[in-house]
Design a protein around this nucleic acid. Sequence first.
DNA 1: GATTCCATCTTGTATATACAGATCTGCGAC
DNA 2: GTCGCAGATCTGTATATACAAGATGGAATC
Lengths: 235, 235
Amino acid sequence: MDSKRQQIIGSLSERINSGRLKPGERLGSESELMAEFGVSRMTVHHAMRELEARGFLERRKGSGSYVAPARPYVAIYPHLDIRAEIEAAGGVHRARVLVQALELAAPPLAQGFGLGADAPLFHAVVLHLSGEVPVEIEDRWLNPALLPECMSVDLTRETLFGLLMARRPFRAGDERIRACTASDEEAAVLGLEQGAVCLEITRRTRSDEGVVTQVRLLRPGTSHLEGRIAPAARD
Amino acid sequence: MDSKRQQIIGSLSERINSGRLKPGERLGSESELMAEFGVSRMTVHHAMRELEARGFLERRKGSGSYVAPARPYVAIYPHLDIRAEIEAAGGVHRARVLVQALELAAPPLAQGFGLGADAPLFHAVVLHLSGEVPVEIEDRWLNPALLPECMSVDLTRETLFGLLMARRPFRAGDERIRACTASDEEAAVLGLEQGAVCLEITRRTRSDEGVVTQVRLLRPGTSHLEGRIAPAARD
DNA sequence: GATTCCATCTTGTATATACAGATCTGCGAC
DNA sequence: GTCGCAGATCTGTATATACAAGATGGAATC
């Protein structure tokens, strides 16, 4: 037996999902619904608050409750640790460290990190393989303050992604996907023929203090990304 | 001046975000927090309920409230109407309809739509242009029951995406992105040279009754997708 | 020592009351 | 007709109370 609150939530959300209540339409007031469902106002109030939090309703003090406008759809792609991704596919993760250094970055890059032009950034280029098969080139810049042990980490045993996840000092970021052709050097590293088609993913993650890390992932065009589609969340 | 509830929410979420309270750790009971913040139990209760809904806490009846495990990050790509996308970039949307027909689809395709092998599917192939510049080939299959007017729609004036959004009869779906080379025919339509690099997006959206629509979008490799990164939502 | 049972602690639900604050409506003055 | 104000309506917040029901730990029992 559902609680009264759950019954109200179920009843109202069903009316919205079925289209009987349309976006923008006004629901009855808490007092009216209180009479309709035979419960106290606070019970209606809590039910509607929850529906508001879930994105079904918009409530305006002094005015009433309205069905929220339909939300656009989005595609959601999980950020997986390349190590876990390879192991989930039945492979064995291996890595070759091509670069692991503290470098003075070009001014625009350093600026994004909120650091002076003379502050070194941590730079790593790692080739990830499933067994002997190249899967991805990871080219990452990182604020060394966030990962003090960055120069002593054995990147063949731990991924920077995994280490950063454990710290998770960022709130938001942006990502960009495009198709491109590998440079000769990249093709050689990935074991592809010259000019092969690749998928390039560029991520930049930010905290309140500035950019945390910036990474360019290059995968052979034969690989693909899989995501799911869902209505956009609120906020 | 924030409400007491907001103060409690802010205080507790700050402790979690800063790492002073770690995932799995138990918070004080409602009674303890009630004393700490100098408010009634119900005020604490409502604040913690909201933190639970937002994914900060897990609450267990009879046991207590615990900091929720850290959520993985995801990249979120909005589904935009190609028309709006082109106009937002300052272009003028134009479309060339290459196919607009009811066709008997191959069995695996028809099966996915929950229709018999002898039931026709609506098939459309539309080239979208910004002015004179090809932007995207849209190759879509659609259950005609969901868009009865599909054969009479002027696809140069309306997009199938827009029409489906107005109906929005689906709850979920999946999407796949990969890099590929255009076929000779596709390259000709998109005005690219043979074997040009392209970005291919395949979407399949489902309702309770089965597949609603399936679409393959092909864009020149020079274009890219832009998304944002955020912690995964609950559910 | 292992098990059972109970007292206690914890969160969940429902209700009533009181007041605050935003919004809306209609009436009256001009 | 227009403007402004007063009152009614509606949601927001805070509190107190009461009881339900899951979880836990320790004492009593076997």
